[in-house]
Structures are given as C-alpha cells and as structure tokens.
Simulated scan of single mutants.
Amino acid sequence: MAESILTVRNLKQHYKIDQGWLKVDSVVKAVDGINFEVFRGETFSIVGESGCGKSTTGRTILRLNEPTDGEVIFEGQDISRLSYEQMRKLRRKMQMIFQDPFASLNPKKTVRQILLEPLRVHKLYTPKERLKKVIKILEIVGLSEYHIDRYPHEFSGGQRQRIGIAKAAVLNPELIIADEPVSALDVSIQSQVINLLLNLQKELGLTYIFISHDLGVVRHISDRVAVMYLGKIVEISKTEDLYNNPLHPYTQALLSAVPIDHPNEVKERIILTGDVPNAVNPPSGCSFHPRCPFAMDICSKVQPNPSVHDGGHTVSCHLYE
C-alpha cells in the first residue's frame, strides 16, 4: 500500500468582506471543507475553472494563507497547529512553484543570490558547498554556471520558470506544490518544463501537487486527479479512470471541452448553461445543481456525500448515491 505524505481534512479558507457599518459582513467560501490524501512519490493534480479555489488550496496547505478550519497533516504532523518557528523549519520539506516566474523572483537579485538564499536561511552546507549545490541544480534544470550572475529580466519566460523550479528544488524538499507552472509559457516551452518536472521527480524522489486548468497537461503528468467546483472537491480518481469514465456531470462537461487528438475523432460537446455562482452566496444543496443537466429536486436541498466506486473513484453526486 502506498505511503501517505499529506492528508487534508475538512480544510476551509473563508474570507470576510467588510460591507461597512450599515451592512452585515459577507463571507467568501474560497475553500469549503475539502478532503484528500496525497501519496509519496505521486503527482496529485487539482483541476477546475478559474475561481474554483484550487490555487487557494495550494497556498493554504503551505500556510501562506492561514486556514479558517480543518487539518493539514504532513508526514504525520498537523502543520496547521505549528508555531511560526516550527513552520519555518518545516518549509525545507514543502516548497511551491508559482504561476508567474517574473513576479516570484526578486528582480534586484542575481540567480546566484536567489538560489543561495534558501540554503543560507536554513543553514545548510558550507559556503563552498552551497555554491556547488546551486551550480548542480542549475544544470539539472537545463541552465548552467554561465547564467549564475544574471538578473531575472535577462531571461526568457521559460528560463525564468526553470529558475523558479530550481529555487523550489534546491532544498531537496519532500513535497512541491506547482501552481499553474506552465500556463504563462508558450505552448512550445510548456512540454519542456513538464518533462523537466517529471525528470526532477524521478531524480529527487519528489511528490507533486499540480494545480492547473489545462486538462491535456494534467493527463500527461498526473497519477490521480481531483476536480474542484466552487470551493468543493466533486470527484477524485486515478487519471485514466477519470478521463475514460468521468462520473460527475461537471467533470464530464470539463472533459468534453478538451481539444480532440485526431481530426477523425468525434466528441460530443457538453455546453453548461449559466455562470459559476457567486462564492459569497453559493446555491443550497449541491453547488453545481443550477447548471447541471441531470439536476433532481434533492440536488437543490441536500449536499451530496462522497461515494466510492471501483478503484477508489470517489464522486459527490446524488446520481450515484
């Protein structure tokens, strides 16, 4: 049985909106009671439309945002209860790759300074060993010592993302959360960065949580996939099971929008009606029911419970209860 590295239980991230002294404050339920487990060495992907809460989930797991409620258990330890100093030490093992490599790299620092900083902060190695480590990680991500004294603006977008990946990997972490790591890159560069992430995973024994809206990329890189809608996870499955047999109507609609692989392929496109509901005032019952082509009376009244099917395929939908 695969070893669990991360367990998320009833995780919530709610934001209060100040309406002024004449009105009652509203609450945005960005992440609303999600549960999942990540196994050591796998790539666990989270997909969904913009605004569904997938990026907030990644940031909350790392406590870049403090969770409103719930537990994040990393290697048997509930990190949501740790002090600032304890969390700071643990960050060696948990790193993040951000969507925009230019925004996540300090424009005033060279590559040398950017990559040496985490090693210095965590007091790892001697100064000479640190430099060797930086040069080695640069070579692993496809750059070289030649680039070490350049600034971020002197690189292309793809090269900047490689530096961002090197920054996350230089500490030899156990878990990396990659938040839309290729969405800001040209299509021709995306495959190179994806292959780099896969090679790093093999070489360093990494575990990934991969956050993306690109279902084609997700299929290529993932072992398991969780589908999010309006702050909740509606389906979790092994990648091939999800793509070959999607159970939730929302997942079916998402996958129907993936471009075809061959001109002769015939695919029925599922067009969802209406817009994504407001997270400040989500629908009662199942949050997807206003847009669901199979909605029943119970869907608007009762929140569906997750049900488990063949191969651990989990879905939250009244159609399968």
Results as ranks from 00 to 15, higher is better:
residue 75 E to Y: 00
residue 250 Y to I: 12
residue 9 R to D: 12
residue 215 L to W: 00
residue 241 D to C: 01
residue 156 S to F: 06
residue 48 G to Q: 03
residue 23 K to V: 00
residue 204 L to E: 11
residue 124 L to G: 12
residue 60 T to N: 08
residue 94 M to I: 14
residue 26 S to L: 14
residue 176 I to E: 09
residue 305 N to M: 13
residue 209 I to N: 07
residue 275 D to S: 15
residue 309 H to E: 12
residue 286 C to R: 06
residue 140 I to T: 15
residue 82 L to A: 04
residue 153 H to P: 08
residue 29 K to C: 02
residue 172 N to W: 00
residue 75 E to S: 13
residue 183 S to D: 05
residue 246 P to E: 00
residue 43 T to Y: 04
residue 224 R to G: 11
residue 193 V to A: 07
residue 172 N to Y: 09
residue 95 Q to G: 11
residue 223 D to E: 10
residue 242 L to H: 04
residue 17 I to M: 10
residue 301 K to H: 13
residue 268 E to M: 00
residue 20 G to K: 13
residue 194 I to Q: 10
residue 97 I to R: 03
residue 118 P to E: 07
residue 280 V to E: 15
residue 9 R to S: 14
residue 154 E to S: 15
residue 180 E to D: 13
residue 235 E to Q: 02
residue 148 I to D: 06
residue 116 L to T: 10
residue 301 K to R: 15
residue 134 V to K: 04
residue 119 L to Q: 10
residue 163 I to E: 05
residue 203 E to G: 05
residue 292 C to E: 08
residue 186 D to A: 08
residue 57 T to H: 05
residue 277 P to I: 09
residue 313 H to K: 08
residue 273 T to C: 09
residue 291 R to I: 08
residue 204 L to K: 09
residue 20 G to M: 12
residue 45 S to Y: 00
residue 24 V to N: 15
residue 117 E to Q: 14
residue 50 S to C: 08
residue 170 V to R: 04
residue 252 Q to I: 01
residue 310 D to P: 01
residue 251 T to F: 01
residue 230 L to H: 10
residue 32 D to C: 08
residue 219 R to I: 03
residue 95 Q to S: 13
residue 162 R to I: 06
residue 301 K to S: 15
residue 316 S to T: 12
residue 122 H to W: 08
residue 208 Y to Q: 12
residue 142 G to I: 10
residue 135 I to H: 03
residue 266 V to G: 02
residue 134 V to I: 13
residue 10 N to K: 14
residue 171 L to A: 07
residue 173 P to M: 04
residue 56 T to R: 02
residue 263 P to H: 07
residue 79 I to W: 05
residue 14 H to L: 08
residue 7 T to Y: 01
residue 265 E to S: 14
residue 289 H to Q: 03
residue 291 R to Y: 03
residue 29 K to M: 07
residue 298 I to G: 11
residue 94 M to T: 12
residue 309 H to V: 07
residue 180 E to P: 10
